[in-house]
Amino acid sequence: MGRMIAVANQKGGVGKTTTSINLSACLAEKGKKVLLVDMDSQGNTTSGLGLEKNELEKTIYEVLREEISVENAIVEIEDCFGNLFLIPSNRNLAGAEIELITSENMQYILKEKLAPIKDQYDYIILDCPPALGMLTVNAMTASDSVLVPIQCEFYALDGLSQLIYTINLIQENLNPSLEIEGVVFTMYDARTNLSLQVVENVKDNLNQNIYKTIIPRNVRLAEAPSHGLPINLYDKKSSGAEAYHLLADEVIENTEK
Rank of each mutant, 00 (worst) to 15 (best):
R3C: 07
M4Q: 13
V7Q: 03
A8H: 00
Q10V: 07
G12F: 01
V14W: 04
T18R: 00
T18C: 11
I21G: 04
I21F: 00
L23D: 09
A28C: 08
K32P: 01
G43C: 11
G48W: 07
L51F: 15
K53F: 02
N54S: 13
R65L: 11
S69F: 01
S69T: 10
E76W: 04
E78A: 02
E78W: 05
D79P: 02
L86R: 03
I87H: 02
P88F: 08
N90K: 02
R91E: 13
L93G: 00
A94H: 03
A96K: 01
A96N: 01
E97H: 04
I98Y: 05
I98F: 06
L100M: 11
T102Q: 13
T102G: 15
I109E: 02
I109G: 03
K111M: 07
L114I: 15
I117Y: 03
Y121L: 07
Y123K: 10
D127W: 09
P129S: 03
P129I: 04
G133N: 02
M134P: 01
T136W: 10
V137E: 06
N138V: 07
D144L: 07
L147R: 03
V148D: 00
Q151C: 12
E153Y: 08
Y155T: 15
I164E: 05
N168K: 11
E172C: 06
S177Q: 15
S177E: 15
L178R: 04
E179M: 09
V183C: 05
T186Y: 08
M187Q: 12
M187K: 09
A190D: 12
V199S: 11
N201R: 14
N201I: 08
D204I: 10
D204L: 12
N207K: 15
Q208M: 14
I210L: 13
K212C: 13
P216M: 09
N218Y: 00
R220V: 14
A222E: 09
A224S: 15
P225F: 02
Y234I: 02
L246I: 12
L246E: 13
L247D: 00
E250R: 10
E250N: 11
E253T: 14
K257D: 13
K257I: 15
